[in-house]
Design a binder for these strands. Structure first.
Lengths: 115, 115
DNA sequence: CAATTGCGCAATAAAAAGGTTGCATGTCTG
DNA sequence: CAGACATGCAACCTTTTTATTGCGCAATTG
């Protein structure tokens, strides 16, 4: 079966909202930015420059991990965090759907008026 | 002057985080989905199907309006809400930057190891 | 092996988010 | 004009979020 874009949007909302919520904090976005630098990084490394305690940073990382935006691996005494692409693709797909709808809104408005 | 992608990401974080935060709620995502349908819609119309009071919906709309994801115009006794593309493009740009970094991470890792 | 480093976990505490109810007001409609 | 409708505004409550401090412990290091 096939669904209209609007319907697909609504069905995706529940899955995607938590990802957006995790992205909705400048500290966490900053952490993600750092994690794009390549190698997995420890909490201590990720704390560098942030005006927060490492515990706070650790909590933020756990928030990101809960929606699978990052993964952590224990390596000796440190936890190494790295970025996952899955949820990012999900968020991008949602935004693309909205944008696509946005781009078509003029035509739909015309169709609505002409009906 | 030109900046590295990672630097641009960090500079954009403060501006983009509030937009993601506004998107980080399934009710609000649902409202956005409805607003992609074309014509501007009243609060009453947007309440249709939602299991919340119109006051709650109104609050959600104000959250979206604060980050300019929607605009409202008074028309007689109703407030008509419509979608804005600006913040959506902003969010998309951020995600695209992260994705681009993600796609280049293998090369950067290699470069890091070879150094 | 003593000291340091890197973290996990728990207890608070303060602030923000999400919803509801109640009341007031301007706008249509019959 | 009376009544229904669509909202705005405010008070209030509950839950979640964000951040801190304090304690404990395994892994490293000199």
């Amino acid at each position: 079966m096939s669904f209209s874009p609007a319907t697909r949007l609504r069905r995706q909302s529940a899955k995607t909202a938590p990802v957006f919520a995790a992205l909705g904090d400048s500290t966490r976005l900053g952490l993600i930015a750092k994690l794009t630098n390549g190698a997995p990084q420890s909490i201590a490394a990720l704390c560098d420059g942030e005006p927060l305690t490492w515990q706070a940073i650790s909590k933020h990382l756990r928030v990101l991990e809960e929606v699978d935006l990052v993964s952590s691996v224990r390596h000796g005494r440190e936890s190494l965090y790295s970025l996952n692409s899955g949820p990012i693709d999900l968020a991008r797909a949602y935004i693309d759907l909205v944008s696509a709808q946005w781009d078509g809104r003029i035509e739909r408005l015309k169709a609505l008026v002409e009906r």
